[in-house]
Structure formats: structure tokens, C-alpha cells
């Protein structure tokens, strides 16, 4: 008498939940920056003339270029998501690559902008800065902390996008772990996986010491089949990237265009 054990593998996925979680996270990010915007508002109210004077020293050209770069990168990431939804992985990867490139351009620009300022002796706690009026000092302190925090977010976003690039470029993998309290019952038996109608069965023998059954399945989405888990991840990363963009859209006029 031979018995066949059916092991069930389950997978829990909740794309709506993942999206909800991401929106909630974005809310926390928004509030993090809100704290800084409140400080900005209070200090600008107190020192409006000094803010005006200090803002003259920022390079509007670099700021404008960076604004355009970030706006374009928001477009490319949206295109990348749309491309992946329409199942053209190649285009999605190109667009994602472009987004990462723009993020890098933004950071490089920021680096040159900051180093020029530091070169002129304008950095927090510098002698040059301390000789100026209090309003200008607080302006530059806010400038460094707010654009710095934003730059950090650009960096994090870039890392996330690179991770997704790797994920999408790689073939999808799925690992099933069979949870069963009595796996030892399987000792000495054979495990068979039905690969597909045409491909038939894949058979493997289970040894004496079995603690856990792990089945790794690698598959590549066929034409006409969308890669849903990666789409959701990319969508969430895209949402994060848009947030980074939106915050810059507020930072740019508040620092560069108030003169």
C-alpha cells in the first residue's frame, strides 16, 4: 500500500495592503518635513528681510536645473511603471535607468552647489557666517538642514530604485517553504512536482534527515503575462520618488525664489 501525501503551499499576497502601507509611510515622511516647514515659516516671519538678502546668494540656475531634472525623473519613473504594466520589461528598465541617472545628476549638482558655498566660507558655524545678521545665519542653517535632509531622501530613493532595477532585470524567483509539523513522515518518500501539462513531473527523493521541505521555483513572466509583484514594488518606489520630487518643488521656491 502506497500513500500519496498532498502538501499544500500557500502564498499570501495583498497588493492593496502593500499600497495602503506605502501611503501611510509617505504620510509620515510628509509630516517629518512639515516640522521643518513650520520652523521655516516661523523664522521667515521673524526675519523676512534677512531671508530675502541671503537668498540672493543662492544660484538660481543650478536650482532650476535640479528642479527640471527631478521633474523629468518623476516622468521617467511613471513611464517605467506604465511600461512594466504593459509587459515591456526592456522599456521599463530603460526608463528606470534614466530615473536613477537623473537622481545621480541631482546629487552631483547639489554637491557642486554645496561645495561652492562651503568654499566661500558659508557653512554652519563658520566664522564668515557668524559675522552676518541672525536672520541670515538661520536662513543658511535651514538651507543646509532642509536640502540636506531632502538630499538624503534622494539618495535613499536612488538606492531603492537600483534595488528594483536588479529585481526586475533578474528572473523572478519564488521560494516555497513547506510548513508542516510532521515532515518526518516524509522520510524515504519521493517528492513529485507537476511542472506543467507538457513538461511532466519532476521527481526527487527525500533523504533520512528531513526537517523542512524547500521548493525553489524560478519563472519568467511570459509574453502577455504581467509581473504583478514587481509592478507593485515599482509602483510603491515610484510613489516614494514622487514624494521626494514634491518636497523639492516646495523647497525650490522657498529658498531660491524669495529674493
Amino acid at each position: 500500500m502506497k500513500s500519496i501525501h498532498a502538501l499544500t503551499v500557500e502564498e499570501h499576497r495583498d497588493f492593496e495592503g502593500a499600497r495602503l502601507g506605502m501611503w501611510l509611510f509617505l504620510l509620515t515622511e510628509l509630516i517629518l518635513f512639515t516640522g521643518m516647514f513650520i520652523l521655516y515659516a516661523m523664522y521667515r516671519l521673524k526675519y523676512s528681510a534677512e531671508f530675502h538678502r541671503a537668498s540672493l546668494e543662492l544660484d538660481v540656475v543650478i536650482g532650476t536645473i535640479n528642479t527640471l531634472v527631478l521633474l523629468t525623473s518623476s516622468l521617467t519613473v511613471a513611464l517605467s511603471i506604465e511600461a512594466l504594466k504593459r509587459n515591456s520589461r526592456k522599456l521599463a528598465l530603460w526608463m528606470l535607468g534614466a530615473t536613477i541617472f537623473f537622481a545621480l545628476v541631482f546629487l552631483v549638482n547639489k554637491y557642486f552647489e554645496w561645495s561652492a558655498k562651503i568654499h566661500h566660507g558659508i557653512y554652519p558655524g563658520s566664522q564668515e557666517l557668524m559675522q552676518r545678521s541672525l536672520g541670515e545665519v538661520i536662513y543658511f542653517n535651514l538651507y543646509y538642514s532642509m536640502t540636506g535632509l531632502h538630499g538624503l531622501h534622494v539618495l535613499v530613493g536612488m538606492v531603492v530604485l537600483i534595488w528594483l532595477f536588479v529585481l526586475i532585470a533578474r528572473k523572478s524567483q519564488k521560494k516555497y517553504v513547506v510548513h508542516n509539523p510532521h515532515v518526518e513522515q516524509l522520510v524515504g518518500s519521493e517528492i513529485a512536482i507537476l511542472k506543467g501539462e507538457k513538461d511532466g513531473w519532476l521527481v526527487d527523493k527525500i533523504g533520512d534527515n528531513v526537517e523542512q521541505v524547500e521548493i525553489k521555483i524560478t519563472y519568467e513572466p511570459k509574453a502577455g503575462e504581467v509581473d504583478l509583484p514587481n509592478i507593485i514594488k515599482l509602483e510603491n518606489a515610484g510613489l516614494y520618488w514622487h514624494l521626494v520630487d514634491i518636497i523639492w518643488i516646495f523647497l525650490f521656491p522657498l529658498f531660491y525664489l524669495i529674493s
Binding site: I31, T34, G35, Y43, G125, L134, V137, I138, N141, L142
Partner: peptide, 28 residues
């Protein structure tokens, strides 16, 4: 997140000397 940013600003002020709350640098 509000306390998050507030605490970060204390770190900025102590470590990087970016005074946001320091009266000698115009802060409150």
C-alpha cells in the same frame, strides 16, 4: 515624525553645529 525631526535637529545642532534653536544663531 514630528518628534523625529525635532530630535534630528538636536543631533544636527550638537554634531554639525547647525543651530536651529540656538538664539546666538537666530534660533528660538
Amino acid at each position: 515624525p514630528m518628534v523625529g525631526i525635532t530630535l534630528l535637529l538636536i543631533i544636527f545642532e550638537r554634531v554639525l553645529n547647525i543651530g536651529i534653536f540656538d538664539p546666538t544663531q537666530g534660533g528660538d
